[in-house]
Amino acid sequence: MSKILAVANQKGGVAKTTTVASIGAALAAMDLSVLVVDLDPQGCLTFSLGHDPDHLEVSVHEVLLGESDIVDALVSTDDGMTLLPATIDLAGAEALLLMRPGREYALKRALAQVTQDYDVILLDCPPSLGVLTLNGLTAADEVAVPLQCETLAHRGVGQLLRTVTEVQQITNPALTLLGVIPTLYDSRTTHSRDVLADVSDRYEMPVLSPPIPRTVRFAEASASGATVMTGRKNKGSQAYRELADNLWQHWDGGKALATLETAV
């Protein structure tokens, strides 16, 4: 059965999509079968992996509403992953799902058809705490919170953690909070380190290692329709490779997750 990880933070600009795409590509490069799911109506993950949302006939929208089987919506990517893409129609699906009983379980039911086909499933949740994010948290085994290493970055984290607690109490008792993935990290300053220390102390969450450095390569990769793993090695791709290896050793071998606290 697949290990399902939701990547969630209702704040935008924290590198959720980059994190899902990069970890997915790194795991695929380890000869693992990986499915990435775009739950954002903006379709950023879909676009960044080389697919134009405007040209897709079937997407996660139809899957969540029960109008198509998940296997009919899946597309391949150049990085060796399989993608369940999103289109702008997904914004309408959120409103339609609100009127349906058991709406939080729509994604979980859909993924049940393919969990035996993948080693890892990564969910790119939208920057909100609406029904689409609730679907991601309900379907996941674990949730990770990407957080940029900047002042006020943790605004809203408490609200997200309360949502996770509610999901654990109501729709997914087995959901585990994996920790924070530090992004946009600048090793030249103590400021980034101070922000992470504050989050770790305030919310008592582990901060996963290594931190993901700020680099223009992420924006360049998204614009080219591929992940940062494609092409020449750089500090961003290396950090995501280390993080992916850290996660897989934890999932497959039961090894304790490497955190910034244990790495010091």
Rank of each mutant, 00 (worst) to 15 (best):
S2N: 02
L5K: 00
A6W: 12
A6Y: 04
A8Q: 08
Q10V: 04
K11Y: 07
G12L: 04
G13V: 01
V14P: 00
V14F: 05
T19L: 02
G24T: 11
G24Y: 02
G24D: 06
A26Y: 06
A26E: 02
L27S: 01
L27G: 05
M30C: 09
L32K: 14
L32A: 10
V34N: 00
Q42F: 03
C44Q: 15
L45G: 10
L49D: 04
D52P: 01
D52M: 06
D54G: 07
L56F: 04
E57W: 00
S59W: 04
H61Q: 00
E62Q: 15
E62W: 09
G66S: 12
E67G: 06
D69T: 11
V71T: 14
V71S: 15
L74W: 02
S76A: 15
T77D: 05
T77K: 07
D78W: 10
M81R: 00
T82L: 12
L83F: 01
P85E: 13
T87V: 07
D89S: 14
D89N: 14
A91S: 14
A95W: 02
A95E: 03
L97P: 07
L97W: 02
P101F: 08
G102N: 05
L111F: 07
V114E: 05
T115V: 15
Y118M: 09
D119H: 11
I121V: 14
L123N: 00
D124L: 06
D124N: 04
P126G: 12
L129W: 03
G130W: 00
V131C: 08
T133C: 07
N135Q: 03
T138M: 02
A139F: 09
E142M: 13
E142N: 01
E142G: 00
A144Q: 04
C149N: 04
E150N: 11
E150M: 06
E150G: 08
L152E: 05
R155G: 04
G156I: 06
V157T: 14
G158C: 08
L160V: 03
L161K: 07
T163A: 08
T163S: 08
E166F: 05
V167D: 08
Q169T: 11
T171Q: 10
N172L: 06
P173V: 11
A174S: 15
T183L: 06
L184F: 13
L184H: 12
Y185T: 09
S187H: 10
R188W: 05
R188D: 01
T189N: 11
S192C: 15
V195N: 10
L196I: 12
A197L: 14
D198N: 04
D198A: 12
R202P: 00
M205Q: 11
P206I: 09
P210V: 10
P210C: 11
I212H: 07
E220F: 06
A221E: 08
A226I: 10
T227W: 09
V228Y: 05
M229N: 09
T230R: 14
R232M: 08
N234Q: 05
Q238T: 14
Q238I: 13
Y240S: 04
R241D: 09
R241E: 15
A244D: 10
L247M: 08
W248R: 03
D252C: 07
G253W: 01
G253R: 13
A256C: 01
L257F: 00
A258R: 14
L260H: 05
